[in-house]
Nucleic acid binder design. Structure first.
Lengths: 411, 411
DNA sequence: CAATTTTGTGCAACGGCTGTACAAATACAT
DNA sequence: ATGTATTTGTACAGCCGTTGCACAAAATTG
């Protein structure tokens, strides 16, 4: 007797996950959950027949809905023209949704997000100043269970955004920022707090925000998207390479906060000296501008205070913004030489501060990078509101896009 | 008619370039051009039937040959055991070969390389001290034409390794090192110098050497391979991500030579200050050790001189090696924080010097990178002799592996 | 109302993959 | 030597997604 030839659980064959149905759904997802059938067929690049086959597959799976009444809108923006108008394709109301959680400095956000990236619901809770691990994860899982119950949709899984490097292999969060935790087995903790065996994905907040910006925001279409952000403590970085998060071997890549900005600078908690995030994160910025800073006041408030101070000519604020823009530009120049991005996005406080520091940043980039001088890289502020939440959902929805299946509801 | 629902459970995949025949040939290539049929079948992960189908396809295309007389060697190293012995599979003598050219400081190398990475022939010519573009490309194409004529094999294409950043899009070489050229449209120049319409691929020498090390050398099996090298002028870097060169948006990524090693250091030709390659390339090293340096003497000779000096306790040499190891370790630490590699390879002079500087390098890595302290990254010297040539051939052979076709010999 | 243009569908065919059954070739025990 | 266990290669029928073509459907244009 021969043992089963195919040992793999998922699928014995070369399951490319690149079949037409999967690609079609991916296109729909990237288009925001709604597109005409003709657009999708054209982008698929195969015949109308094959596209129809794939589409009917998606409809049968309950992932997608096709309008009966076509409207005359053309894909190429030409408004209308001769020819039979194309049907509209939507994400179905029976399609699975992702639950996303984002652990921020001052709040805990949880959301229900659909294919296409539409946020169906968000719940936000403030969190105490110095929370312990157990209570936080209790609250996360309680919210997740609640939203899962009330969603009325199949749950494809959970995506969690953590303010720390996250090991890809097992969702372990290494040294979360602005929490006095040593290291947290995030994936397991969330799993254990749930009633149902939903798959749990964990990612670094900057990575996830960048991913969301690439799919639904200001990063759309970029091949190598470099993302930098600061919320309060620390500087987050991410690189989206051809549509996927660049995580390195373990998931710890793009820890740009610990790029050396001043080799003889003060000691950083990471062991090195003069790390960029020691001198250029929100906390350092507020301190340098002699402005009050507290995590309880939101980013928006602090940014407004800072910008107002700088705009009315407050010398400390102006100087602080200039100084930090210089350091940031220098850091970006180094990253350009290593990563050769074709777009750079600034998120968090950096997005709000960008108008003030743009010139200084650009000048430093040009001086420190010969690649930048050869072909300047566009720098833009990020646009999405809850980017990290969206990105966390992407982790889950990507799996749906590839397998076209909802994980078994119970096992 | 509606398609059945059970498509992607055991679904035969869409016809991608990742079909079994292509994957089988890739496995054979990575195995060095020779393997037993059973090994290949096991690694393919599909049934023996499908593997046989793919294999017969490759045989029919003249890419692969199967031994009639099987030998009893087992794949798992167990020597022998019960069961029918597996046939051996080789790269066929009728399979297409790649021509590779490598423009070095002091020599021009051209080779004929087969699937599996075997070098069938190498020709090396010295080049004058300050060559002009036209004469160099005349010599390159003359050698290529000659080796192509005499190969007696179908030519899959040309791979060229250049000591400069290379634009992926069109094979343009930006500011070649140790040549006083402004920029060279390498791909077009080589194409025009050939009689036949062979496809021409161009790459950066460090990228190609790293690619070769990953496929056939000390980098095998690494997921994120960081490669650093110095030949004479400048420091080359490369990252191999899951088996492919990380080139960034344009191909200019990993210009690590212009990482800032000393923010207030001397001006570099790149416009920045204190670039790593100003203070840590071979030229700087020889100068710091007060040793004679000339591109005419090969790397090997200079390395021997330097190592001998350091080993007999010459203070200048010892200090120079220490100093450079420190800078290198610091640079590597920064790259670890950004790239999270799982292996680091040192090539060129760095490989030969590594035994002397290992301790210093490791210490600096640990001090400057908290990721390194969490999980140390192994550092190894590179092993291949003509890595860049092999890598250049990979560019060409990759196309064969994907399409299983030789480009039409004439058109 | 006919002509044109674009879009959706039915149908036959194809190609690669799957699993099963069977034959071939070896080692090992008796 | 003979038979059994074990592993490897091959033949065959069936499946499924894709393809290309022909034709029907639904709009604009004249």
């Amino acid at each position: 007797m021969t043992p089963p030839l195919s040992s793999s659980i998922i699928g014995p064959s070369g399951n490319d996950s690149a079949n037409n149905a999967s690609r079609l759904l991916t296109l729909l997802h990237h288009a925001g959950g709604e597109a005409t059938r003709a657009e999708l067929t054209a982008e698929l690049g195969c015949g109308r027949s094959a596209a129809g086959y794939a589409l009917s597959d998606l409809v049968n799976r309950g992932l997608v809905r096709v309008d009966d009444r076509p409207t005359a809108r053309r894909g190429d923006g030409s408004g209308s023209g001769p020819g039979r108008p194309s049907h509209h394709v939507h994400v179905a109301a029976t399609s699975p949704v992702a639950l996303a959680a984002h652990l921020r400095v001052d709040t805990l956000d949880v959301a229900v997000i659909e294919l296409g990236g539409r946020v169906l619901r968000v719940e936000r809770e403030p969190i105490e100043v110095r929370p312990d691990v157990a209570s936080i994860f209790l609250r996360i899982t309680r919210l997740l269970r609640k939203l899962g119950r009330e969603a009325g949709r199949p749950i494809a899984g959970i995506g969690v955004s953590m303010p720390s490097p996250v090991r890809t292999e097992d969702g372990y969060a290494l040294e979360p920022r602005h929490l006095e935790w040593a290291g947290v087995p995030t994936r397991d903790l969330v799993r254990e707090g749930l009633d149902e065996p939903w798959p749990v994905h964990v990612g670094n907040d900057a990575n996830l925000a960048a991913l969301a910006e690439h799919r639904h925001g200001a990063g759309r279409g970029a091949h190598q998207l470099l993302y930098l952000t600061t919320e309060h403590i620390g500087i987050g970085g991410a690189l989206i390479t051809e549509g996927t998060v660049f995580g390195g071997a373990r998931g710890y890549a793009m820890e740009v906060g610990h790029t050396t900005a001043d080799a003889d600078g003060p000691r950083c908690s990471c062991g090195s000296r003069g790390c960029l995030e020691l001198v250029a994160d929100t906390r350092a910025l507020m301190r340098a501008a002699y402005l009050p800073d507290s995590p309880v006041t939101g980013i928006e408030y602090r940014a407004r205070v800072l910008i107002e101070a700088a705009e009315r000519g407050d010398p400390a604020a102006t100087q602080a913004v200039d100084h930090i823009s210089t350091l940031l530009g220098s850091g970006i120049a180094g990253l350009i030489n290593v990563l050769d991005p074709d777009r750079i996005l600034l998120g968090g406080l950096l997005a709000k501060l960008y108008p003030l520091g743009a010139a200084r940043i650009a000048a430093e980039m040009a001086e420190r990078s010969f690649l930048e001088r050869a072909v300047p890289v566009p720098v833009l502020p990020a646009t999405l509101d809850c980017a990290a939440l969206l990105g966390a959902a992407e982790l889950v929805l990507d799996h749906v896009l590839q397998t076209l299946q909802v994980p078994a509801p119970a096992e």
